[in-house]
Amino acid sequence: MRAPSTGYGLLTPVLALLVAGFLAPTAIMALLSLRTYSGMQGFGDEWTLANYIFVIGDPYYLLIIGRTLMLGLIVTAACLLLGFPLALFIQRSRPAVQTAAILLVIFPLLCNIVVRSFGWMVLLAPRGLINEALMAAGLIATPLDLMYNLTGVIIGLTQIFLPFMVLLLVPALQNIPADVEAAAFTLKSSRPRVFLTITVPLAIPGIITGSILVFVLSISALVTPRMLGGPTYKVMATQIYDEFMTNLDWPAGAALAFVLTVIALVLIWGANRVAAHFTRGFSA
């Protein structure tokens, strides 16, 4: 009989890639975040925790961290609210309609994110299509602030990440056993009640994975917040980018990056705990 460990050899290529391409840079970043800042070299020779204390103590950084989390929450909620009915529609459609709808959902992903963000700029700008149209219709007198603020970034990110939410919700809904909703319906429950007590709880695995994915993508998104938020409306990702590329304060950028990572990991862990509790009856 062969040793049961033989299969681990198959992991070698992917392990090598992960060590060289992910673990090593992460370790270097971790070391970097613990170094002092030096105006001339980017980082000094001494060890310090000052970068972390600075990043989580400074009101400006706290504002950016808070804003980023808020952004993530709102985009996730918006994707869920828009995505759930769409996923239900897809799940309940004929196979041909299903395929067409899924293709339409995937279609925007084929378009470069810069192009899509630019498209939103054309629409949302102070003299953009939406404002021009509203003013021409006489509905508003001065342009609405749709860009270079939270509104613009939320609109852009929601549109960009909606496909991920839908693509994770559809299989979760398809996994709901046949007849379960019909059974609830015969047990004196109205359609809305069946939806709330049966459909939504049984879709929780998809809701949680979709939400985690959209949240993590939102709080770490760089291009769209930069383009629709402008140079002054900053979130963590754009701030990290600026620390590295503009301020050349690598230790501060690295520390902020790790704060972002820890926030993401804690939220993923917490969400999984919540999911495990709600799905303990049917999820392995």
Binding site: V180, A184, T186, L187, I198
Partner: peptide
């Protein structure tokens, strides 16, 4: 939901 019937399914259709 307003017919007051009981229905037993082939697939059991219990709420998991």
């Amino acid at each position: 939901n307003r017919r007051n019937i009981g229905l037993v399914f082939q697939s059991y259709a219990l709420f998991p």
